[in-house]
């Protein structure tokens, strides 16, 4: 395994076709979470899976394109978070490659890292675009309490994002991991960039 293969920009057809499928999975994760009235979004399971399967670049592309498409079909506000989604794909892809999906314990750590990084990336966007909120009632209540107590804006906003992102991303990564681990070999082979034709 060389570093070059993780960052390869020569996408296989299978990896490209994975992107729309992963975006669909993102959407359905969200749909089922709403249907079952779960207290989480679970709207980036596909991004996480595509990173685990096809690496950080495809993962990042999935995240970015996901938000662009979501902006076109559901809510323009999601354009702003294309960066966050892209970073999630990137981080999962790199860490998965470095062995952070070898066990459920490691996947839990990966989930925490992703949650914190997602919050870190989202905070400046939240501050720039809407003065610090996330649009999530519980997170924003926390935000309001904190600035009412004169804590710094960036701190309150970061806490808001953390409260919103960490539980969701931990659950997302764990679910992604559970599904990934159980995928059949004949499907995961398609995305294996190392396979070559073995001339007999």
């Amino acid at each position: 395994m060389t570093k070059k293969s993780m960052w390869s920009l020569k996408f296989s057809t299978a990896a490209l076709v994975l992107i729309p499928a992963a975006i669909g999975i993102n959407y359905l994760g969200k749909l089922f979470a709403e249907l079952l009235r779960l207290p989480l979004w679970l709207d980036s399971i596909g991004t996480v899976l595509s990173s685990m399967l096809a690496g950080p670049i495809i993962g990042a592309l999935t995240g970015i394109i996901n938000n662009i498409i979501y902006g076109f079909t559901a809510s323009p506000v999601s354009f702003v978070y294309a960066i966050t989604s892209g970073v999630i794909g990137l981080v999962v892809g790199i860490m998965a490659y470095r062995g952070w999906i070898a066990s459920i314990g490691r996947a839990l750590v990966l989930g925490l890292v992703v949650g914190v990084i997602a919050a870190t990336v989202s905070t400046p966007l939240n501050i720039l675009f809407w003065g610090g909120q996330t649009g999530n009632i519980w997170g924003d209540a926390l935000f309001a309490t904190m600035i009412a107590h004169d804590l710094p804006l960036w701190f309150a906003s970061f806490a808001d994002s953390l409260a919103v992102d960490v539980p969701d991303k931990v659950a997302t990564v764990i679910i992604g991991f559970l599904i990934f681990r159980n995928l059949p070999k004949n499907l995961t082979h398609m995305y294996d960039r190392r396979s070559e034709i073995d001339r007999l």
Binding site: T13, A14, H189, S195, E196, I197, D198, R199, L200
Partner: peptide
């Protein structure tokens, strides 16, 4: 087979005079 699926491939396939491999 073999270009998309990779794997172990032996023998030859010709389409007209074009060798698939």
């Amino acid at each position: 087979v073999p270009h998309f699926f990779k794997g172990g491939y032996g023998g030859n396939v010709f389409i007209g005079d074009m060798e698939v491999y």
